[in-house]
C-alpha cells in the first residue's frame, strides 16, 4: 500500500472542485505559463498592424497628432503654462506614457471577451490574457519613445541623470492600466456595458491627468492629493526624469504608487474570484 501512495504523490495531482469566495492568486502557476504570455503578446504585436498601409507608423502618429492639436489649442491659443519647457515637448513627454496607458487599458478591458473562444476551449491562468494585451503595447511605446528622444534633441533638451527612474514610472503606468484592466475585463464578461464605458473612461481620465496642463497649477497640499490619480505620478515623473522640470514629484509619486497598488491588488483578487465563471458566461 505504501508503494502505491508513493507513486501517487510522484505525479502532479490536481483537485477540481467548486471554489467559494476569494481565491489565492497562484502566481506560481502563472509563472509556469510564462511562455504562453510571451506568445500571446508576440501574436498581438505581429498582427496589430497587418494590412494597414502605414503599419507601425500608427504607433507614432497617435500621440504625435494629439500633441499637434494640444500645442495649437492649449499652447498657442490658450497660452497654457508649461513649466518653462517648449509646449510641444511638454505635451509629448506626457502623451507617450499616456498613450501606452490608455491603449493598454482599452485592450485589456476588452481582452477577455475577445478571447472568448480560447477561454471556452483551453485551460490556462486567465490573468495571462489582460496582461499580454498590455505588454504588446510596449513596442508601440518604444517607437513613440524614440520619437520623443528625437524631439528632445530637436529642442536641444538633454535628459537628466534622473532618466534612470523612467522604468519605475513606466511600471506605474503599466500597473495602473493592468489594475483597472483587470476590474473592467472581469466585469465585461458579464456586462457588455463595460465595453461602451471604456472610451468615456479614458477620455475623462485624459483630462483629469495633467497632460495639456502642468500639475504645478495646483498649490500644495492639493498637488500631492492630486497624485491619487496614478497617471499624475506617471506624467509628472516622465517630465521630471526626461525634461528636468523643477516639479520633483516626491510625495506625489508615493501617493500615486499607493493608489496603483491598491487598484492592482484588489483587481487581481476580484479577477481571480470571477475567473471560475468566465467560461460559462462569456
Amino acid at each position: 500500500m505504501s508503494s502505491s501512495t508513493e507513486t501517487l504523490t510522484a505525479v502532479p495531482r490536481i483537485r477540481l472542485k467548486a471554489s467559494n469566495g476569494w481565491r489565492a492568486l497562484n502566481l506560481r502557476e502563472f509563472w509556469q505559463y510564462r511562455e504562453l504570455l510571451y506568445f500571446l503578446s508576440w501574436r498581438d504585436i505581429k498582427v496589430r498592424y497587418k494590412q494597414t498601409a502605414l503599419g507601425a507608423l500608427w504607433a507614432i502618429l497617435q500621440p504625435f497628432l494629439t500633441m499637434l492639436v494640444f500645442s495649437l489649442f492649449f499652447g498657442n491659443l490658450a497660452k497654457m503654462p508649461s513649466d518653462g519647457i517648449p509646449y510641444p515637448i511638454f505635451a509629448f513627454a506626457a502623451l507617450v506614457p499616456w498613450t501606452f496607458f490608455s491603449n493598454g487599458l482599452t485592450q485589456s478591458g476588452n481582452s477577455l471577451i475577445q478571447s472568448a473562444g480560447m477561454l471556452k476551449k483551453v485551460y490556462f491562468p486567465r490573468l495571462i490574457v489582460p496582461i499580454s494585451s498590455i505588454l504588446s503595447g510596449a513596442v508601440d511605446f518604444l517607437f513613440a519613445f524614440l520619437v520623443l528622444i528625437g524631439l528632445m534633441f530637436w529642442y536641444g533638451i538633454v535628459p537628466t541623470i534622473n532618466i534612470i527612474w523612467l522604468p519605475v514610472f513606466l511600471f506605474l503606468a503599466f500597473g495602473t492600466a493592468l489594475g483597472v484592466g483587470l476590474w473592467l475585463s472581469a466585469m465585461n464578461v458579464q456586462f457588455r456595458d463595460v465595453r461602451y464605458t471604456i472610451p468615456f473612461l479614458t477620455q475623462f481620465w485624459l483630462f483629469a491627468t495633467p497632460i495639456a496642463y502642468p500639475s504645478s497649477l495646483l498649490s500644495e497640499p492639493w498637488r500631492t492629493i492630486y497624485g491619487i490619480n496614478p497617471m499624475v505620478g506617471v506624467v509628472e515623473g516622465f517630465r521630471w526624469a526626461l525634461l528636468g522640470t523643477a516639479t520633483a514629484p516626491g510625495p506625489l509619486i508615493f501617493v500615486s504608487a499607493l493608489t496603483m497598488l491598491t487598484i492592482l491588488i484588489t483587481g487581481m483578487f476580484y479577477f481571480r474570484r470571477m475567473e471560475s465563471t468566465f467560461a460559462d458566461v462569456v
Binding site: 502532479p12 495531482r13 483537485r15 477540481l16 467548486a18 476551449k121 483551453v122 471560475s276
Partner: peptide
Amino acid sequence: KILSQITEPSEGHADMFGRVGS
C-alpha cells in the same frame, strides 16, 4: 470541460493524477 479545468463543477470533485492535455 470540467476535467480540462475550463469550468468548475457545482458539486463533487475530480482528481487528476498527471499532466492533462485537452
